[in-house]
């Protein structure tokens, strides 16, 4: 079982997302996260799917995805050098001065950003690998967490490697 990041270029058509989601649920494949948005070419969407499975399962996943009529091209990024990034927004309660200091220290260490501040709450933004985002959450766990929003992973190949038409 290995974690895989599959990038998919698909026609930006109504229903394309549900075809992919339906495929995963119908065949019992795992989805850890799935993100999708239009690309610079508005007729195309790009999807990043994080999944896991044996080699045979992953082979089936890529074949089945390719078989969807809306899918134009795909790549298993984990087969080469790649980068994966997640965006996380966290709202924490911070009323005492001590709490505020603790949080500030963590935000500095993890290079997070404040995107909203009230008397009793901070809303923080953090981007990074899944591991980094997880570590930040863990470190924050002392603070009083109000809300956590994660984007799921976006992936891209390193170097000249590109998934393009």
């Amino acid at each position: 079982m290995m974690r895989r990041i599959i990038s998919v270029l698909l026609e930006n058509e109504a229903g394309a997302l549900s075809r992919v989601a339906g495929l995963f649920s119908a065949r019992g494949y795992n989805i850890e996260s799935l993100t999708v948005a239009p690309t610079d070419d508005p007729s195309l969407s790009r999807m990043t799917i994080v999944t896991s499975g044996t080699d045979a399962v992953i082979e089936q996943i890529t074949k089945q995805l390719n078989k969807l009529v809306d899918v134009v091209k795909l790549r298993d990024l984990t087969e080469g050098k790649h980068l994966g990034r997640e965006l996380m927004l966290v709202k924490v309660s911070a009323s005492s001065a001590d709490q505020k200091d603790d949080i500030k220290r963590l935000v500095d260490i993890f290079r997070g950003r404040y995107i909203d501040v009230t008397e009793s709450t901070f809303t923080l933004e953090l981007t990074g690998s899944t591991e980094k985002v997880d570590a930040f959450l863990e470190a924050l766990s002392q603070a009083e967490m109000i809300e956590v929003v994660r984007s799921g992973m976006l992936g891209i190949g390193r170097g000249k490697n590109a998934l393009k038409l």
Binding site: S18, R19, G22
Partner: peptide, 14 residues
Amino acid sequence: TVGITRPCVKHNFL
């Protein structure tokens, strides 16, 4: 219709 038939068609259109 598109939703109901999706898992048992090669493709569908609205």
